[in-house]
């Protein structure tokens, strides 16, 4: 060690302690500017009546009171809960099933299948919605033609009947998201040591039993992660119903996110839209937080 060297600079002495704050800093700056402040502004706006010009007028809880009496709001809430139930009860299990099939030992073409099932999520939703609109066209669509050819009946008004319109939207959701979720489950499954299955087989466990006692527990972290992500993203579903059915017929496929968009950008009821946003935030954030905590996402065991 040379004795003439000066004291290391202040920065040099504290670098290891301070550097991580600089590394993670950009996220928190953006987070504050583009998430915290907007949420705060949204809460404020929700107590006002504002069409975008002049000063917002304070009206207290009026927006919330109107919301609770607004049939459109309840309809969109019901539809959103329906979409969420569908993804949790149908899409999620379907992708777990598909992942289990792809995880079969020595399966050939596994990567090819994985890619084919994943591709839908790569394509822009507007493109997907257009093609689905074409396929599910009530008069000239491929779907009705197929039904006609196979079962001898067609002519289902896919996008103009309230019930069928909802079906088309969830079919689109199923088509778009199943393969995406599958690759997460598949990665989780491939992490389960084969010996566990062999041990279970030695103990006389059948396929179902070993699925319940070996596979499911091992998949807990990945299921938690996917579950929370899917829950939060379905709660704000917008593109599928907006592009495919414009929320119709009537309001039968309208989602909460569409309700907010419509109020804010088509009717200029900014305070009203903000109030709906605040309610949605409260519900989704609470559910999301509870789920994240329950499943300990991000905590290394």
């Amino acid at each position: 060690m040379s004795t003439v060297s000066a004291q290391p600079s202040w920065w040099r002495r504290n670098e290891v302690r301070l550097a991580p704050y600089l590394f993670i800093g950009p996220f928190y700056v953006l987070y504050a500017l583009f998430m915290i402040i907007p949420i705060g502004a949204g809460v404020y706006l929700s107590f006002t009546d504002w069409a975008g010009l002049g000063a917002p007028q304070w009206i207290g809880l009026e927006n919330y009171r109107y919301l609770l009496q607004d049939n459109s709001f309840w309809t969109s809430l019901g539809n959103t809960v329906f979409y969420m139930s569908f993804t949790m009860l149908v899409v999620l299990p379907a992708s777990l099933l598909l992942a289990s099939a792809l995880n079969a030992r020595g399966l050939k073409l596994r990567d090819t299948f994985r890619i084919i099932f994943f591709v839908p999520v790569v394509i822009s939703p507007i493109v997907v919605a257009l093609v689905f609109g074409l396929i599910f066209d009530g008069q000239f669509g491929l779907m009705n033609a197929l039904l006609q050819a196979v079962f001898g009946f067609g002519g289902i008004e896919w996008t103009t009947d309230p019930l069928w319109a909802r079906v088309v939207v969830v079919v689109l959701v199923l088509w778009r998201w199943t393969g995406y979720l599958t690759i997460f489950f598949l990665a989780g499954l491939q992490n389960v040591p084969r010996e566990l299955y062999e041990a279970a087989a030695l103990d006389g466990a059948g396929a179902v039993r070993s699925f319940l006692s070996v596979t499911l527990p091992a998949l807990r972290p990945v299921t938690a992660f996917i579950g929370v992500t899917v829950l939060v993203s379905t709660a704000q579903i917008f593109e599928e119903p907006f592009l495919l059915t414009q929320g119709g017929p009537g309001e039968s496929t309208l989602s909460i996110a569409m309700f907010i968009y419509r109020a804010a950008f088509q009717r200029q009821e900014l305070g009203y839209a903000a109030a709906a946003g605040v309610l949605m935030f409260a519900a989704v954030f609470t559910i999301g937080r509870i789920a994240l905590r329950l499943f300990q996402v991000g905590r290394n065991a």
Partner: peptide, 23 residues
């Protein structure tokens, strides 16, 4: 801080679009 990061995954985008657009 990490908790804050993870929590932000549970903030629905639809809630910030109106105020963020206005800001």
């Amino acid at each position: 801080l990490f908790d804050v990061l993870i929590s932000s995954l549970a903030v629905p985008f639809a809630v910030i679009i109106v105020p963020l657009f206005i800001l």
